[in-house]
């Protein structure tokens, strides 16, 4: 196993794929931070699932496997899904969580039906399309890797440029709008960027689990810091680390899809954060509570002793006065 591992990382092709996974994780982590803070974590999941029929239709129409075309298909069906969710919440009494659940499952259902249809169509080109379910980073072509890497870098660059705007829109959209900042436009842009992050991640991580690469690094990063900038950098790092780990493990142990391994890597980082992060982590909270309890006990204990001392004195005095009265 160790030798396959070495073969793997010395292969220039694989180095590129690793680089692609790294950049993908970075981009997803950065964009995911805003998705998470705007409380749209579930939306990322819905968008990822909604991408499947888009990918299938793009393949059915073109007959070739091209990430560029798939991306267009996924964006179109992602936008349709967003409109669907919007329409349901707007024109019925159904709340957003239920609307998300409905739209997510409908699109995914349609996608799976289409995918099965394609697999039975006898089109030789279709082999490998099923990899989009759970992802197979190793099956990426070099051109795909370039595309994934470049798109991820663009996402990170846009977030850096519009950091101030995205921050305000995520924290207080009402105030931002009053100030004349184009909130609607920025929200659409964030949504579009989320779709793009999901779509470029699909080949490596798969439709089903790509949302985890978006959200888990951001949630983990939130544990370590109270500053948005630091949180975003950390989320990017955690995402990149998960991406690389997932690709390495799934590439070395053959037949293991990348998505689940990447998600497990991200979840491990999350677990470590929950337990050990200073300030917000469980260990730190437990220690703090114990220390507080001790302090309270000590000061309360002292106070009690003082009160008892007073009482003793009073009773002494009372005794003495009684005695003098006698």
């Amino acid at each position: 196993m160790l030798s396959t591992f070495f073969n793997w990382i010395t292969d220039p092709n694989m180095q590129w794929i690793l680089m692609g996974s790294l950049l993908l994780g970075l981009g997803s982590g950065v964009i995911g931070s805003f998705t998470f803070l705007r409380k749209q974590s579930l939306l990322g999941d819905a968008l990822a699932h909604a991408a499947l029929p888009g990918i299938c239709i793009a393949f059915m129409l073109s007959g070739v496997k091209s990430i560029g075309l798939f991306m267009i298909g996924a964006i179109v069906s992602g936008v349709l899904a967003t409109f669907g969710i919007h329409a349901i919440t707007r024109y019925s009494r159904i709340k957003q969580d239920a609307a998300l659940g409905i739209v997510l499952s409908v699109f995914f259902g349609v996608g799976v039906v289409m995918m099965t249809k394609i697999q039975h169509s006898g089109n030789g080109n279709q082999s490998g399309l099923d990899k989009y379910m759970f992802g197979q980073a190793a099956s990426m072509m070099l051109s795909d890797v370039y595309l994934v890497g470049i798109v991820s870098l663009i996402l990170v660059a846009v977030c850096t440029l519009l950091f101030k705007e995205f921050k305000l829109v995520s924290f207080d959209p009402g105030f931002a709008r009053g100030m004349g900042i184009k909130v609607g436009l920025l929200e659409q842009l964030l949504l579009l960027m989320t779709v793009i992050a999901v779509v470029v991640g699909i080949q490596a991580v798969g439709v089903v689990l790509v949302a985890a690469l978006l959200i888990t690094p951001a949630v983990a990063a939130r544990y370590w810091t109270d500053a948005l900038g630091v949180m975003i950098v950390l989320a990017g790092l955690f995402g990149a680390l998960s991406g690389v780990t997932g690709t390495l493990i799934s590439g070395t142990l053959s037949n293991l899809p990348t998505g689940p391994v990447t998600v497990l890597a991200a979840s491990s980082i999350f677990l470590v954060s929950v337990v050990f992060a200073p300030g917000r982590g469980m260990v730190s909270k437990l220690l703090r509570r114990m220390r507080q309890r001790n302090e309270v006990k000590r000061s309360y204990g002292n106070g009690l002793a003082a009160v008892e001392g007073d009482r003793a004195m009073i009773s002494n005095r009372a005794n003495s006065s009684e005695r003098s009265a006698d």
Binding site: F171, D172, A227, M231
Partner: peptide
């Protein structure tokens, strides 16, 4: 704005 209109757990 009203104080409740934002999430005060925002990292800032």
């Amino acid at each position: 704005p009203q104080r409740e209109s934002v999430d005060w757990d925002f990292p800032t």
